[in-house]
């Protein structure tokens, strides 16, 4: 035992504080993303952290999030995404947290990681949509890619 204790050999064991001032939430409006949204807002409230809520637009649609936007004649995927942001906004207001919302263009995982870095996020929260469709089978899920490449801790909320 004594030997093992010595073998710890890392910097001094010390007090650790959960220092989460900024949280980045990525949502695509899917069910797991909505659950991640609720989790992120509840956590931001408890910790007094700020929340940046993003949707990553990989397509060519020129969509923007202004205020409670609902594009009824937009493609289904786009509608769901903006609905996701609207839901986040309503929950964030209801729970009185400090937040901002942005639509960012680019590759999903890379954009999440880059935006989190720019925001100096202490935590990334995403929903795990699992694997559906051929693309995800070959490339792995967004959550896997973010988890693999992010130096910022990633909290993955799964939908059932």
């Amino acid at each position: 035992m004594g030997q093992n204790t010595k073998a710890i050999g890392i910097d001094d064991i010390s007090e650790v504080n959960l220092d989460i001032k900024r949280i980045l939430l990525a949502t695509d409006g899917s069910a797991p993303a909505i659950m991640a949204t609720k989790y992120a807002i509840a956590l931001a409230k408890v910790l007094g952290a700020s929340l940046k809520i993003i949707f990553v637009d990989i397509g060519e649609e020129q969509i923007s999030f202004t205020d409670k936007i609902v594009i009824v004649d937009a493609p289904k995927e786009t509608r769901r995404s903006t609905a996701g942001l609207t839901i986040a906004q309503i929950y964030a207001d209801k729970n009185d947290i400090n937040y901002n919302i942005e639509i960012v263009k680019g590759n999903v995982a890379k954009t999440i990681i880059r935006t989190a870095g720019d925001y100096e996020a202490d935590l990334i929260i995403i929903g795990n949509t699992g694997r559906t469709g051929l693309k995800r089978l070959t490339l792995g899920s967004v959550a896997e890619a973010v988890v693999k490449n992010s130096s910022i801790p990633v909290l993955v909320i799964k939908g059932s």
């Binding site: 693999k148 130096s151 990633v154």
Partner: peptide, 23 residues
Amino acid sequence: SLGSVADAVMKGTDIPVLVVSDS
């Protein structure tokens, strides 16, 4: 397996998973 333990755990449970890197 192509992925890490974290990937496999994420797939195998509905419980929220916090994944932390080495940096």
